[in-house]
Structure formats: C-alpha cells, structure tokens
C-alpha cells in the first residue's frame, strides 16, 4: 500500500485540514456561546449561490462565493440586530433563494454537476497549491484578528451591553466576527463542503464544553480535538474514497455523543 504522503494532493489536504481545524474550532467557541449557529448555516448555503454564479459566468467561483458569504452574513446580522425579522425567517429566505439560484444556474450548464458534489460534501483531491497559499494568508489574518481582539470578542459573547457601557463599539466587533465566520466557511468549502461546514462550526466547542467550563481551556482543547478529528477524517477518506467532509462530520458527531454519554455516566 502506498504511503498517503507520496501524493502531493494529500499533503495539501492535510495542510488545508490543519488550517480549517484551527479556524473552525476557534470560531465555534463564539458561535456556540452566543447561540448563533444559524449564521453558519445561512452563510454557507448562501455561498452556494455565489459559487454557481462564478461557475456559470466563468470567473473564480471561490471569489464570488466569498462575496456572497460576506454579504449574506452582514445581511443576516443586521436584520437580526434591528429585530425587524426573526432570524430563522431571514435565513429561511436567503438560504432557499441562494440554493435555488445555484441549482438553476448549474442545471443550465450540465458539465458542472460533477464539481458540485465536491462543493457540497468536500473532496480531498480538490485543494490546489494556489488554494493553500490563499487559505494560509487568510487564516493568518483571521488568527491575528481573533487574538488581537480576543477580549472584545469575549465581551461581545459574555456581556454585550456592558461592552457598550465601557464605550466599546460592539456593532463593529459583531460584524467583524461575522466576516471572519464567512471567510472561514469559504476556506472550508473544498475539504468539508457547504452542507457540512456548519457542523464544524458547532461541534468542536459543543464537545469540549461538556468537559470544561472556562473559555481559556475550551478554545485550545477544541483546536487540538479538531486537528485530530480532521486528520483522521482525511486519512480514512483517502483509503475509502468517501467524501472527506462527510467522514469528518461523522467522526465528530461520534466524539460528541461519546463525550456526552461519558459525562452522563460520570455523574
């Protein structure tokens, strides 16, 4: 049996997987504690419309998906903030419109249907060197922002109103975090897929929170756990040819339930 590291695409997949593990689990802490998993679902599905537009009109699908993701993220947050519409309605509308638009455009160009499966569920073969360079730069920028504004993001999640008492521009941090979520989703699409990415934005912190009750521990442990899970998913995906995203989500779900059952037994 050949070693999987003889294949350059596998090395790419592992590097990409590492970046995704770090970003998704860091962000999942804020998503879980603020109970905003709907934002992840809304943004990722809207990105599908963006992808289809790029494919249809022949420019980079990742760039159009990125634009769609950021715009829909900002739209969701501003609707929710202004309390004009209930968040599930906003997402229900955006989500289905974007998916419908995507399906319509793609069905007009038959040759893309093969690609689409990878975008929806992840494909380890799809990550190129160019992708990695872009992912690496974006991941670095995101990590720097997250660390630089960590206290402000913690305040946003713990006590937004008191943040305002202290004169902090909480709207700014809220939108910044939304843009970070959108960019992370785009980075994750090729390996994990649009349908499954929202799981990766929830399960890491949800799992570690079963065991830990201090954010200073939850964030690093979520990252370690995610690296292990994503690497195992990629590894098994290579030998079984099952889409990587599906495997990663299945392993993660298993880990979550195992933790949950163990914690119940312990009590």
């Amino acid at each position: 049996m050949p070693s999987i590291f003889q294949y350059s695409f596998m090395i790419n997949a592992f590097i990409g997987g590492f970046l995704i593990a770090v970003l998704c689990s860091f962000i999942s802490f804020f998503i879980v504690s603020r109970k905003i998993s709907f934002i992840g679902v809304g943004i990722s599905h809207s990105a599908f419309g963006g992808l289809a537009i790029g494919l249809f009109f022949g420019f980079s699908p990742m760039i159009s998906a990125l634009l769609f993701a950021i715009i829909s993220g900002i739209a969701i947050v501003s609707f929710v903030e202004k309390k004009k519409i209930q968040e599930d309605s906003v997402i229900g509308i955006l989500f289905s419109f974007s998916m419908a638009l995507g399906i319509m455009l793609i069905s007009l160009k038959k040759e893309y249907s093969a690609n689409i499966f990878g975008y929806l569920f992840g494909n380890i073969l799809s990550v190129t060197k160019e992708d990695l360079i872009m992912y690496g730069v974006l991941a670095l920028i995101i990590i720097i922002i997250l660390l630089f504004y960590l206290k402000e993001f913690i305040m946003l999640s713990f006590d937004e109103t008191y943040g305002r008492v202290l004169g902090l521009n909480m709207d700014f941090y809220n939108y910044l975090l939304t843009i970070i979520i959108a960019v992370t989703i785009i980075i994750s699409i090729k390996l994990v897929g649009i349908i499954l990415i929202s799981a990766l934005l929830v399960i890491p912190a949800a799992t570690t929170q079963i065991w830990l009750n201090d954010y200073k521990k939850i964030i690093p442990f979520s990252i370690i756990l995610s690296v292990i899970v994503i690497f195992s998913g990629l590894y098994i995906s290579f030998y079984t040819k099952v889409p990587s995203g599906a495997l990663i989500v299945i392993i993660y779900t298993a880990v979550f339930f195992l933790s949950w059952i163990l914690s119940k037994i312990k009590k």
Binding site: S33, R34, L166
Partner: peptide
C-alpha cells in the same frame, strides 16, 4: 445582561471590565 451560561471564571469576568489605552480592553 450577562450570559449566565458563558464559560468564564468570576475573576476573569471582573478583570474583563478593565479598560486600557484608547478605550480598548
């Protein structure tokens, strides 16, 4: 207005209110 389920220790919750230069935490 705090989120009571937020995983944070009392001492960190108090220190989080510390403002430094230029109005940043």
């Amino acid at each position: 207005t705090v989120r009571w389920t937020f995983p944070i220790k009392v001492s960190d919750a108090i220190l989080l209110g510390k403002i430094g230069q230029k109005g940043k935490l």
